[in-house]
Amino acid sequence: MPMDYEAYTRRKAFIGLILFLSLLVVSLFSLSSGPYHVPLREVLGILFGGGTKDDRLVVLSIRLPRIVAGILVGASMGIAGAVLQGYLRNPLATPFTMGVSNGSMFGASLAIILGAGYSLNSGQVFLNNPYAVVLFAFLGAISATLVILALARLRGLSPEAIVLAGVAMSSLYVALTTLVQYFANEVQLSAMIYWSFGNLARATWRENAIMGVSFILVFFYFILKRWDLNASTLGDDIAKSVGVNIERERLVGTLLSAFITSVTVAFVGVIGFIGLIAPHSMRLIAGGDYRSLIPLSALAGALLLVSADTMARLIVSPMNLPVGVITSFLGAPTFIYLLVKMEGRR
């Protein structure tokens, strides 16, 4: 029996290794491909300090920050989804169902109508005060969760009620966004729409540093709480019976999930489905043990997003598609497939 258990644990480590290697391969491929082709061998040379000036510029200053952003955003969304699904015991739960996406859209739109956005004659849209937009988007994103958690704390909301409150807050923010858009002129409106397309190219090294720090802190916090997450999936009574302060852990876990997602959304916009697909596919492949589910969801999220972003860059090259379109386009059917497979397990 213990032999079996060890084999089972080794299998999960093996899945992690495969995901990590795949992420490495996709990232290298992504660094090399694009309208400006850099052969793979040169990419490796550049990473270790060689290469021509032009090649170095393309690989290190344009493509690498974007790939790192993809890894950080995908990993953040992967663990945020995994954790919320555990604490709320709801397969649909992600920070986006807590109103993070619609809240950020409202925040960004508000910043733009207050004067942070304009567009040039060429049709290209720029934000003349990106910091204001990022800040407002972040505050909008996290605010819905704060309202829900305040309610949960005051009135002792059940996980189901928390999810439903998230749905309600999301619709509220949709309404508010529509209201703001109604009063916007066409230039502002196009800036809002432009913002709403999630785009990893917005992230530079500074943004990556912020996202990296917030991801690492929250990741290790969740690793420490892995047993509490396991306990939560069995219901509150059992969680309490094994000594978990489940109400507090649920609040803190939900807040931190919303926080890392809000940080990424503020910088790169809304990119859907990663928080659903990454954890659910890992649950099906490696099981629901949060000891492995947290790192595997991070790896799977990173792999999914970097792959999707590479597709977004190459599909209609030299044009870039918004990566959010790709993830939603492929994510929706994949999610339905996963749900059907999971139902079969009940």
Partner: peptide
């Protein structure tokens, strides 16, 4: 404590 109902999950 053993409750009346336990949630089935993806845990082994």
């Amino acid at each position: 404590y053993v409750p009346q109902r336990v949630e089935p999950s993806f845990l082994t």
